[in-house]
Amino acid sequence: MEHEIIYVNGLKKRFRTFERAEGKGLIAGMRRRYFYKNALQGVDFTVNEGELVALLGRNGSGKSTLIKLMTGILYPDSGTVRVMGMDPWKQRAKLAENMGAVLGAHSQLIWDLPASDSFEMMRRIYHIPVPVFDKRLKYFISRLSLNDVYKRQVRQMSLGEQMKCNFIASIIHLPKLVLLDEPTIGVDLPSKTALRETIFDMQRQFKTTFMLTTHIVEDISITKRIILLDNGRVVFDGTRSMLLSMFGNKKHVEITVDGRIGSGYNKLGKVLERSDDFIKLEVESSEVRSKRFRSMLNASNVIDYRVAEPDVGYVLEKFYKKIDRRKV
């Protein structure tokens, strides 16, 4: 039986916030209109041990609030959160021993010191024996290409280097659960891949549970399950393939030709992108198997073509549009 690591039921949280009152000029600019923002409006889901879950949603949809409620940083207005069987608010410090979290731009590193000093601080905080710590650190440092970096003052590092070091500081104790709130901001492409591979490795080797919020489509590729938040509510909870199939059984086809794209291609499906010698189409899966389609692809002027699943980013965009239409 799979062990439940996160249990969230009817979770609500609202904040008092303000916006500038209407009008121009200095006095008008000083007037504020206070209101309550419902960050979470009754969120329910569970996550089992070893799962790799993407928590997605637009800006302000409640993702970060949810992460902070699960770590015990914020106090829930109502509802239940249980992480590893514990109440994060009441047992925050105990829970933190088996949890790691990357909270976007909020670094755990000490700004004026080399990252190595922050790692050493973490070693003591999490009671990691020195030989074990040294071995782990060596592995993470080489994996994320930080050999020439981690002994430099944090303030002198690039944003991407800081993010990678912050990631190490958050997982050096090999927690059972890792909550990652936009962990790849500012990270270069090779390091993004290394970071994703590290997550994947940890999940496989140690059965670490990961919950990841991101706006970067490639980050989602490592997750099997997607929880989609909108306006403080879960609007989708399922596998990636379930999300992709929500808008019909479609394929994305990219065709490059020698010369100009003929008008006949337009009739194969919905045109997503087009230039003189390139076209990207959204086509029904059945159409891809049709004779007409195959003959088009086998035409002598076709240099290259690619048939693939629509990417998650594209499907999410459609999903959001659908939600917005419903609201209207």
Partner: peptide, 13 residues
């Protein structure tokens, strides 16, 4: 600056 969040995710008070 919001760094209180980073402080509260450690197993110390």
């Amino acid at each position: 600056g919001g760094t209180v969040a980073s402080a509260l995710i450690k197993p110390i008070s």
